[in-house]
Design a protein around this nucleic acid. Sequence first.
DNA 1: CCGATTCCGAACGAGGTGTTCATTTAGGAA
DNA 2: TTCCTAAATGAACACCTCGTTCGGAATCGG
Lengths: 201, 201
Amino acid sequence: MRRTRRLIQEALVALILEKGYDAVTVTDVIDRADVGRSTFYAHFTDKQDVLFSNIEQLTFLHPAPAEGAGELFAFSRPMFEHVREQERLVRALMGRHSGGLVHARGERLLAAVVRSELVAAGGRESASLDLLVICVVGAFMGLLRAWVDGETTATPAELDAAFRAAVMPGVRAALPGTFSPVEGANSGGLRARPGSGPGRS
Amino acid sequence: MRRTRRLIQEALVALILEKGYDAVTVTDVIDRADVGRSTFYAHFTDKQDVLFSNIEQLTFLHPAPAEGAGELFAFSRPMFEHVREQERLVRALMGRHSGGLVHARGERLLAAVVRSELVAAGGRESASLDLLVICVVGAFMGLLRAWVDGETTATPAELDAAFRAAVMPGVRAALPGTFSPVEGANSGGLRARPGSGPGRS
DNA sequence: CCGATTCCGAACGAGGTGTTCATTTAGGAA
DNA sequence: TTCCTAAATGAACACCTCGTTCGGAATCGG
């Protein structure tokens, strides 16, 4: 049944939030979910399998309503907002106490988004672009981890602003055609959201 | 004896490179190191303890004075070089298959370095500066992980260049008085410090 | 009422953990 | 050398977790 799967998933999430991923045992999970041991192994191969099955439900990683030629990195702000809504789950999955493989999976999903956005914005596919993608994703995930681990109390808006302030100048410089290459007048300060005009959509 | 400690540490590193951190058991280690089980627990509390004891030897994380008025983020290039020298150890410690806590530890060490550099360069201590530090460290560690995990074949020089290209513009924009060689025309334009920084209400 | 599917839970063997303890080994001082 | 002390040894230990197996109970559709 689907109910059993859900019970197991929820039990794992709850336990991770309480004890951390490593400390949670399968026995804990089946006890909390009130499920037979054999039932667990009938649905999942092991603890990690349950973890991965949860990632699909992280809607903030499967973005994002298109947002074609609009603002670059439009995903950032909605993502932080989404994360807040799904705080429990994200805390369990993306915190430092989760398995490293989950991080890798999340980073890969996000990297695909970032990469396609950069390409759509005129970035030429190259090794250096891939390195840029890694930096951008690293910065974003760094903020995300710090946030869900309680190392900062910033709001989603502030996190979004910090993210953009840190990476946008470098990204702009790496892209060819974007207006305002190095105008200098205001090189993208912390709150720089000039114009932001939706242009024509 | 110190020799015994070293044997255990080296055995763990070797085994991590072969099987990944999670798959290595204490029994494996003491077998490889050819030491008694009780001897292991006389020197370390558990597997993770051995891992942490190795971090201290990651010289690339304990940089690297020579700063002062020099170039910003002068640590980057030497770090990548150093990493190459200690490739085995870094691969074992910082790869995605290592424990997440080791990452956290490494990031904290690096964050301290980055933060002090930014402050020395004129950055005002604030919440937004901390967020910037997180982004910078995230970008650097992202590159590092991707590199040691074989996701990119770039050279240290290329990684250094990519790192600087990605984060330096954003960092420059966030610093007030940095001598701005070329784009310095504005110089003062960056007072973007909305209110009194992200202060969480 | 009857299958058929699903779930339960006890039990098992294999393997890992961390501790204890009696014994052996190695180093240094007299 | 001899003696003493600290370190290392390895066997045995109780305990836990894993993943599997299997007989029986519950649930559901017909």
